[in-house]
């Protein structure tokens, strides 16, 4: 054993062994760095990107302001202020809808929680900003994201499922809620 160790020492065997890997890499050079933003990686089929609010095909907001997304959100991103639709008494909607995207984990629980599929996860991810406050999105901004990310819209609920009975409809003969 001692003799073999001595031979290895005087011939720099370990160094040669290491150099072999180096030389191999030099000969078979293949870059793995993606030249972002000139190059982009293809996204997975179920990629969870920026959140968006969606509309029906007639342009009305899908959101009924049920606050279930707010309840489902583990990091308190969402804040919903719901009320009666003006001019359409007893119909519920989100008067204000905020998402603080600085906190979002993109877990998608809100999308799963939504009973009317009003939330969608887009494939957008380029949301770096210089001012964090710009990541505090309101309803209009979220709807705009939805508009550009989901150009194909669903029909109103009652046309999709004829048996949904009276789900969030307005009544003409009822006075507005007093304030």
């Amino acid at each position: 054993m001692k003799f073999r160790d001595w031979i290895k020492t005087i011939t720099f065997y370990e160094i040669l062994l290491g150099m072999k890997e180096t030389i191999k890499h030099l000969v078979h050079y293949k870059p793995i760095t993606l030249q972002y933003p000139h190059e982009k990686k293809p996204l997975a089929e179920n990629y969870r990107g920026m959140l968006a609010l969606l509309r029906y095909d007639d342009g009305t907001e899908k959101c009924v302001g049920c606050d279930l997304c707010e309840a489902a959100c583990p990091s308190r991103v969402i804040r919903v202020i719901s009320t009666e639709v003006p001019g359409e008494p007893t119909k519920r909607y989100a008067k204000e809808y905020y998402m603080d995207m600085t906190r979002c984990l993109f877990c998608g629980l809100c999308v799963q929680a939504c009973p009317v599929d009003a939330l969608g996860m887009t494939r957008e991810y380029e949301w770096a900003v210089y001012d964090k406050r710009k990541l505090h999105l309101n309803k209009e901004q979220l709807l705009a994201i939805g508009d550009r990310a989901f150009p194909v819209r669903e029909k109103q609920l009652e046309f999709q499922h004829p048996n949904v009975a009276y789900f969030n409809v307005s009544f003409k003969d009822i006075p507005e809620k007093a304030n």
């Binding site: 009924v64 302001g65 049920c66 279930l68 519920r92 009973p115 009317v116 949904v164 009975a165 009276y166 789900f167 969030n168």
Partner: peptide, 13 residues
């Protein structure tokens, strides 16, 4: 059978 299942918009939900 007849309940509208509108729990998301119902205040009792």
């Amino acid at each position: 059978a007849n309940h509208p299942l509108d729990c998301p918009v119902c205040d009792q939900g």
